[in-house]
Amino acid sequence: MEHYMMNLSLKVWRQKNAADKGGFVTYPVKNISSEMSFLEMIDVLNEELIRDGKDPIAFDHDCREGICGACSMYINGRPHGPWEANTTCQLHMRAYKDGDTIVIEPWRANAFPVIKDLVVDRSSFDRIIQAGGYISVNTGNAVDANAIAINKDNADASFAAASCIGCGACVAACKNSSALLFVSAKVSHLALLPQGEPERRSRALNMVAQMDKEGFGSCTNTGACEAVCPKEISIENIARLNREYMFAGASVSK
């Protein structure tokens, strides 16, 4: 891979805290290598800001290999930037060329309030899981792992749904700020397994109810969520959730 250097202009959302109104600030960055990751480019800028006595840009990040789901930048109008099936931390600077301007914002959604700069509060996702995103089995209760055979297609589909990293890109991309792709992935993961069967109906109802309570919007089948999902979670899961929900609504008497 040929390696090159570039100078860029970054327009970054700065917001001191939840109460602050916030606004864009433009920063020139120089001598950026095409081999750097996007977040390493931000590291370079932050080191400069610190040396100049300014406040560095706060952003969530941890594993930097696309699996923890912490990173969450809205880059030039797209969650996680221009690459397909990718997280911000995996984006590399060879996606850009000398002279480019890059606009960086936090996730925008009522249910994801900004804490500082590019950091948002996604604890609403944890509360949706608390509403029913689990199988109620205490430690020590389990039968032998091979006691129940599971059809491989179902197991694979369950795994595909379970690969969701809970980053919230689906919400950020949705014009309604709906969390339905996230919720449907979680419901599908468990609904497709025999172990998830006993709580299947109450799970779908309770998780959707919690989602609404958190202030996420409704789904209008635009598909923007699927297009930006770093783990390529399919909107077929939303169709499955709708079926689960309808069926549960019709059969639960409580």
């Binding site: 689990y134 199988i135 089995v137 430690t139 020590g140 209760n141 389990a142 039968v143 792992a145 129940i148 055979a149 599971i150 059809n151 491989k152 197991a155 694979d156 369950s158 795994f159 379970a162 993961h189 468990l190 397994l193 172990q195 998830g196």
Partner: peptide, 15 residues
């Protein structure tokens, strides 16, 4: 325990 919790481990065609 993990299988009971719904951890989707890889499976063979026999399930």
């Amino acid at each position: 325990q993990c299988v009971a919790q719904g951890v989707p481990f890889a499976r063979e065609y026999g399930g």
